[in-house]
Design a protein around this nucleic acid. Structure first.
Lengths: 194, 194
DNA sequence: GAAGATAATGAGCCTGGACTCATTTTGCAA
DNA sequence: TTGCAAAATGAGTCCAGGCTCATTATCTTC
């Protein structure tokens, strides 16, 4: 679904393989900088490739977006996994939250993705995976007593997506980011809701 | 700056006056439904007017957006003022917050506005006014002891904008909205931060 | 109820951006 | 080294949407 020639067996030619990598790298940069509305032309230019080549590899702009979104999401999931690994004191969720928001402030694509802005990409299963990863952190936090037991996954994801969006569009600086997250974290603490 | 013919003195012709009102009403509906990317054509159609007429009144799509944004903002400011008026127990800020987020969930324009998404509208002074209105509610809340004294305006605005964005793009239902806001409100309470 | 000013109309211009395809180039296998 | 399939190229098509302007219709004033 990502390249015109059928995948089975036949490996890509060397130049095709090279260009594919270049295009993905360029797209990640361009979309991170300018958001999902950046033009395919610009991606091609940055990759040092003709526009037709981009469309040979990704028949649709959406396909290209989906491909890099998958990468971005995988990165987030991995971060969550790492934090989950050595989460001795149940603060992994907070760390993950802060890291992700900070990323979103510079990488437009991350926030656009989390908000599913505009582009209709079908990544339910991948989002599902991210949700699971965050759920893991949430469970650890609840168990460690750093987050109230009443708190469920949907609202955590909602807060995460919101904050990423806000940080991106609002151009929050580090201090505002910290003060804002502090309020959210405080609201998650056991007994905070009452 | 909003109409081609100079404003001084000369009142609009009767038909022009009528159409101007229709266009604004149509624009408010259309942008609320489809966000700021909706086409000017659609606004004209809904107003029952030719496209040229829209551009006679608002030489630029941005001018049209700015005009209705001003109206939306004025509405928010008024709500804040009303709540501030009879805020006996310092819960006005919370009520305002909840109302605005609920509006944003249905009126794309509100959230787009608060996030300054895409369109470059110069409404600093009007946003300033909204900020002042919210500041009033915040002061009352701090005085009444419903919000921690450490909490400043910027983070409140940041949370407000974020949550509106999130609610809109994420399509939150009433329950998720409530659960999410509950966490934020809890985080605002005195001593929550510790 | 003219006459002139003001406004409405809508076909069409123009730009940007997604996407195509005939042609050329390149890699690979025999 | 040669032949051909795979891939690259980029000028060009198509379309959407912002915006224009010559023409026509409508007010308003005297």
């Amino acid at each position: 679904m990502t390249s015109r020639t059928a995948d089975p067996g036949r490996p890509l030619r060397a130049d095709a393989q090279r260009n594919r990598v270049r295009i993905l790298a360029a797209a990640e940069e361009v979309f991170a900088e300018h958001g999902v509305t950046a033009s395919t032309e610009e991606v091609a230019a940055r990759a040092g490739v003709a526009i037709g080549t981009v469309f040979r590899h990704f028949p649709t702009k959406n396909d290209l977006l989906a491909a890099i979104m998958k990468g971005v999401l995988a990165g987030l999931v991995e971060q969550a996994g790492t934090l989950s690994g050595d989460d001795r004191n149940g603060t992994g969720l907070f760390t993950f939250f802060a890291q992700t928001v900070e990323q979103a402030a510079t990488q437009k694509a991350v926030a656009d993705l989390l908000a599913r802005t505009g582009v209709e990409i079908q990544l339910p299963e991948v989002l599902e995976v991210l949700g699971e990863a965050v759920h893991g952190l949430l469970r650890q936090a609840r168990a460690a007593g750093t987050v109230d037991r009443q708190v469920r996954l949907p609202e955590v994801m909602a807060l995460l997506a919101s904050t990423c969006q806000g940080a991106l569009h609002g151009g929050w600086d580090a201090e505002l980011r910290e003060r804002t997250l502090a309020i959210i974290f405080a609201g998650l603490r056991p007994g905070a809701a009452r």
